[in-house]
Simulated scan of single mutants.
Amino acid sequence: MKRTIVIGPLIGVMLASLSGCDGIWTDGGQAGNDAPAVSESATPSPKPELVLATAVIGLGKQNLKFTVDGGKGDVRSGSLDAASGAVKVTADVGGSPTELITYRDDIYIGGLRGDGKWFHARVPNFKDSAIPFLAMADPLFGASFLGSASDVQQSQPNTLSGTADLTRVIASGTTQLIAYAFGKAAGAEATALPFTATVDDAGALSAVNMVFPKADRGKDLVYNLKITEVGGAVTITVPAEGDTVPAPADFYTAP
């Protein structure tokens, strides 16, 4: 029988346990002075779902730099400021070099105006037709989707695979809207989307590869996330109110 473990609840248990112990990999016993030594060779390897859960938990705790490749030569670079949770992406929007800053429920778009001001958009106002733009503005969404992973396998030491269920993604803001829209577009496939993820030797998530059926205006959306740096210096500053103008109404519906 095929074994299915969804790691979302597992992540919750692990987060709770972290507040009361020094690490995840413990045997649950109390080690005293007379405790027998355990050889390193006797320590079992963590299960694949635990390896993935640990990597997902740690993703937002350090500054990141990353790239996202949509498979058409449209590689975008970005960074995460772990202290604030803000994400900054350099992209091409309508043929114009553009900077996107996503901070909570706000998105700031720079480079589309000739006066140096930023458009300011509110995430809850976006409609389904504009979801591909949200995916561009917050490209770490795919890593968050791994919280719904099932059937996690580890074919190589640093390579994990399984399926994600978009109907079971626990998220908020842009990630929640993206999961809902992509799930609706995928139909019956939404509950078991294949993914491949890699972790580095320290157990940090380093890449995620998925394909979302019909998510890009009826076409499949290729998602290749690569973490290029962990823990470096990243500071993302949200534009001051005087440097912004409200995004026009059609911005929220444009494909």
Rank of each mutant, 00 (worst) to 15 (best):
Val87Phe: 02
Leu18Pro: 10
Val234Gln: 01
Gly70Cys: 06
Asn209Ser: 10
Arg76Pro: 02
Val245Pro: 03
Asp151His: 10
Phe66Arg: 06
Gly231Ile: 04
Glu229Asn: 08
Thr167Trp: 10
Leu221Ala: 00
Thr175Ser: 06
Ala121Cys: 06
Phe251Glu: 12
Lys117Gln: 06
Ser17Met: 15
Val152Ser: 02
Asp105His: 10
Ala149Arg: 00
Glu189Met: 13
Phe195Glu: 01
Pro213Ala: 02
Thr98Pro: 11
Gly173Ile: 05
Ile236Lys: 08
Gly183Met: 08
Gly70Met: 06
Ala53Phe: 09
Val13Tyr: 08
Pro36Asp: 15
Ala247Val: 14
Pro9Lys: 08
Gly203Gln: 07
Leu160Asn: 03
Leu64Gln: 10
Lys127Asn: 13
Leu134Asp: 00
Gly20Ile: 12
Glu40Val: 09
Val208Pro: 03
Ala16Gly: 11
Ala186Cys: 05
Arg3Pro: 09
Lys117Ala: 12
Gly242Ser: 13
Asp216Lys: 07
Leu225Trp: 08
Thr90Gln: 03
Ile227Gln: 01
Val38Ser: 12
Thr196His: 02
Glu189Ala: 13
Lys47Ala: 15
Tyr108Thr: 05
Leu225Asn: 03
Ala181Val: 02
Gly116Glu: 01
Glu241Pro: 00
Val93Gln: 14
Gly173Tyr: 12
Ser148Pro: 11
Gly23Ser: 14
Ala137Lys: 00
Ser84His: 01
